[in-house]
Simulated scan of single mutants.
Amino acid sequence: MDKRESMWDLYLKKGMSRRTFVKSCVALTSLMGLSTDQVSKVVEAAEQKPLPVVVWIHGHECTGCDESFIRSGAPLASDLVLSQIALEYDHLLSAASGAPFEAHLEETIEKYKGNYILCVEGAACTKDNGVYCMSGGHTFTHLLQHAAQNAKAVIAYGTCAVSGGIQAAKPNPTGSSGIGYFTGGTPVVNVPGCPPIPEVMTGVVMHIALFGTVPPLDGEGRPKQFYGNRIHDTCYRRPFFDAGMFAESFDDAGAKAGWCLYKLGCRGPETYNSCGNLRWFQGMSYPIQSGAPCIGCSNAHFWDDGAMTERLPKFGQPIGDVDQIGAVMAAATAVGVAGHAAASVVQKKKRIADEKKNEGAGEE
């Protein structure tokens, strides 16, 4: 790409109106979790800043994050790729292109050194010098280090890239891990999930594209606007938890009535994500709404944590039939809620301490 056009330049070239352009900027502002007083800044950036160059590489993974990405509704993935970023290289889209496209990757890295965004999907394979994941004659870890050290910022898309994902589950025969060890001093934005919500993926890359900086991050390097709340905090079934009304099986009366899924293994109380806010398929639904407990897919090592078989913390022995909960369940619930509240306070204090520690390290 010789001439780097702005988002507004492309809208003009396609004959799109100013009104459509501004509406797109308003939607982007909302998507990025910004207040309405930031719309003018988004419009200004979209008018003046050239489209950000993006390099997208893939390690050990299933391309599920790409499958999620192409289902983004605001903005549409097609609009993002064709009008809002300059996607110069993508492993998945370019798998059959061969040596010429690998040469183009090197040209892109050299030409836009320090100015491109590196999107990474998939885990880094470390065992036996990384030979179990190779592309273009090089190991993925070699490519990752090379591309990351010359990037403006790195976005780790998906739990595989953030912490290893299913490849890193025991016994982890390929030595897979998150990409953090290989990114050097380049800023990294962690976007965990298996896969992440599509609008979260587009929102993060557009924040960096328009403002030239990574969004505010929490203690684990995740964007606060998307990972600032637990699933539990935004769950529409939360009142049933507080009332001690739990489904005991997937087909009992409680499950059919929409009661809390905590006793069926829901990891919502420990999982930070936007599922309850943004939901999936343009706000249509999410696992809990469809009757499935949260498995904590944005948590590190969730494959090894019994997310699909165990609840946490354990309540102990089952307490009767859902129609006979009565006073016994109320008493048990009081204990459970108190323990849950205490755990929430400890977890919040830990997050605040981690964030202060990271901010202190950044100032140094």
Score class of each variant (00 low, 15 high):
residue 291 G to M: 05
residue 316 G to I: 06
residue 4 R to M: 10
residue 161 A to G: 07
residue 211 F to E: 00
residue 80 L to M: 10
residue 287 P to L: 00
residue 107 E to T: 09
residue 49 K to D: 07
residue 228 G to D: 02
residue 217 L to V: 08
residue 166 I to V: 12
residue 137 G to C: 05
residue 45 A to R: 08
residue 235 C to I: 03
residue 128 D to A: 11
residue 209 A to W: 02
residue 77 A to P: 02
residue 167 Q to Y: 14
residue 340 H to L: 14
residue 323 D to S: 15
residue 164 G to H: 00
residue 91 H to M: 11
residue 13 K to W: 05
residue 110 E to P: 09
residue 66 D to S: 13
residue 172 N to F: 09
residue 157 Y to V: 10
residue 59 G to E: 04
residue 296 G to S: 01
residue 302 F to T: 01
residue 131 V to N: 09
residue 228 G to C: 01
residue 296 G to D: 00
residue 4 R to H: 11
residue 19 R to V: 13
residue 112 Y to G: 00
residue 256 K to C: 07
residue 299 N to H: 04
residue 228 G to Q: 01
residue 247 A to P: 03
residue 279 R to A: 12
residue 225 Q to S: 10
residue 103 A to N: 12
residue 330 A to Q: 14
residue 102 E to Q: 14
residue 54 V to G: 02
residue 182 F to W: 10
residue 262 Y to G: 11
residue 178 G to T: 03
residue 302 F to V: 01
residue 160 C to Q: 03
residue 238 R to W: 12
residue 62 C to Q: 00
residue 246 F to M: 05
residue 134 M to Q: 10
residue 148 A to N: 08
residue 157 Y to T: 08
residue 75 P to K: 05
residue 87 L to I: 02
residue 203 G to Y: 02
residue 270 E to L: 10
residue 105 L to K: 02
residue 49 K to I: 06
residue 260 C to V: 04
residue 298 S to W: 03
residue 30 S to R: 14
residue 271 T to A: 09
residue 3 K to S: 12
residue 99 A to E: 15
residue 249 S to D: 11
residue 25 C to L: 03
residue 314 K to H: 15
residue 318 P to K: 11
residue 88 E to Q: 11
residue 174 T to K: 14
residue 98 G to W: 07
residue 126 T to K: 08
residue 179 I to L: 03
residue 161 A to L: 07
residue 260 C to N: 11
residue 219 G to A: 04
residue 314 K to D: 14
residue 155 I to E: 05
residue 254 G to Y: 06
residue 7 M to R: 06
residue 213 T to V: 10
residue 359 E to H: 13
residue 240 F to E: 09
residue 43 V to A: 08
residue 195 P to E: 00
residue 94 S to P: 07
residue 311 R to M: 15
residue 237 R to V: 08
residue 122 G to L: 04
residue 140 F to D: 02
residue 208 I to N: 06
residue 336 G to C: 11
residue 99 A to Q: 15
residue 222 R to V: 01
residue 106 E to H: 13
residue 192 P to R: 04
residue 322 V to Q: 13
residue 38 Q to Y: 13
residue 11 Y to W: 09
residue 138 H to M: 13
residue 205 V to N: 00
residue 108 T to Y: 00
residue 81 V to F: 14
residue 326 G to S: 12
residue 129 N to K: 12
residue 282 Q to E: 15
residue 88 E to T: 10
residue 165 G to T: 01
residue 45 A to K: 08
residue 303 W to I: 04
residue 150 N to L: 13
residue 254 G to C: 06
residue 306 G to E: 03
residue 147 A to C: 12
residue 335 V to W: 13
residue 28 L to M: 15
residue 27 A to K: 11
residue 29 T to K: 05
residue 144 L to V: 00
residue 320 G to C: 04
residue 307 A to M: 08
residue 62 C to D: 01
residue 112 Y to W: 11
residue 128 D to C: 10
residue 364 E to S: 13
residue 269 P to I: 03
residue 174 T to W: 13
residue 345 V to I: 15
residue 294 C to S: 00
residue 251 D to V: 12
residue 301 H to W: 12
residue 104 H to K: 12
residue 204 V to G: 03
residue 188 V to Y: 01
residue 342 A to E: 14
residue 88 E to N: 07
residue 234 T to L: 10
residue 196 P to K: 05
residue 171 P to L: 09
